[in-house]
Amino acid sequence: MAESPRFLRYVAVGDSFTEGVGDDDPSRPHGVRGWADRVAEVLAARDPAFGYANLAIRGRKLDQILAEQIEAAMALEPDLVSIYAGANDILRPRVDLDALLARYDDALARIAASGAHLVVFTAFDPGGSAVYRPIRPRFERYSDFVRDAAARHGATLVDYWHLTEFRDWGYWSEDRMHMGTPGHARMAAAVLDALGFPHDLPDVAPSARAPGGLRARVAADAEWLRTGALPWVHRRLTGRSSGDGLSPRWPIPVRPAGADSGT
């Protein structure tokens, strides 16, 4: 059996997906944990010299991530970098996808050239959502690009598009935009599996959604529209972001909280 890889410094780059939004933990910076923290805890348990930084900030679009996080990540001299970027751009009414993907590819090449091992993600397949289904072709094209880029740059691919269990909304938070705790736990396992790194992360069952007929579903949809969708649209229209004023959760490498707890 091949030996699992050894990493001593992991830097996570991106937006809310990587920051950990939806996986609430008041004891941690920004009040979240997330899949990247969970991955780092497993990696750290194997090596006392391991360090982890998370530069991701919710709401960041691709160019913000490239400007604010890539060189900062490289300055930390990581041997493992994960990145997921561009989804916030794709959700906008208009996007030049060709230009977006070209800039993203340049960033992936920069990271790969540093010698760090790169982990990349396809998008989630939104075809099961009436809200997100109209922009499914954009995310499908993005995912095709990421698969090709992973092959070109020797990166580890986490093919989110084909993690079909995420079609169960029990893996998502109440805002229907971010993974919930079960989703982050499942994603951590998927990342470690893709890296070929053994783990015994416990399964977290998807959240139970309250049963109900048409009236209950309409009421739930109306509540989501009021508390989730409309605030998001308002921020877009006013040029604001949920990440305004936030700094990275772990800007310099630390030994992850929980690394020695086995959870």
Rank of each mutant, 00 (worst) to 15 (best):
M1S: 14
S4A: 15
P5E: 03
P5C: 03
R6T: 15
F7L: 11
E19W: 09
G20I: 08
G20A: 08
G22E: 10
D24F: 10
D25P: 07
R28F: 07
P29S: 05
V32N: 09
R33W: 11
V39F: 04
V42H: 03
A45C: 09
D47W: 02
F50M: 01
Y52D: 01
Y52M: 03
R58F: 05
G59E: 10
K61S: 10
L62I: 08
Q64S: 14
Q64K: 11
Q64P: 03
Q64V: 13
I65T: 15
L66V: 09
A67F: 00
A73Q: 02
D79R: 04
Y84W: 12
Y84T: 14
A85Q: 07
G86N: 00
A87Q: 03
N88M: 00
D89R: 04
I90S: 07
R92W: 01
D98C: 00
R103F: 01
D105R: 15
D105K: 05
D106H: 12
A107Q: 08
A109V: 13
A112W: 01
G115V: 10
V120D: 01
F121G: 00
A123P: 06
D125T: 06
S129W: 06
A130K: 14
V131A: 14
R141T: 13
S143P: 06
D144C: 06
F145E: 11
V146S: 07
V146P: 00
R147E: 00
L157S: 09
L157K: 05
L163I: 15
R167E: 14
Y171M: 07
Y171D: 03
Y171L: 08
W172L: 06
S173W: 13
S173F: 11
D175S: 10
R176C: 12
G180W: 06
P182K: 11
A185E: 08
V191R: 02
L192Y: 09
L195T: 01
D200S: 15
A205E: 14
A205G: 05
S207N: 11
R209W: 06
A210D: 09
G212N: 07
R217A: 12
A219H: 09
A222H: 01
A222S: 13
W224K: 08
L225M: 15
T227N: 14
A229P: 02
L230W: 14
R235I: 03
L237K: 10
G239D: 08
D244F: 03
P251N: 01
V254F: 09
V254E: 15
G262K: 05
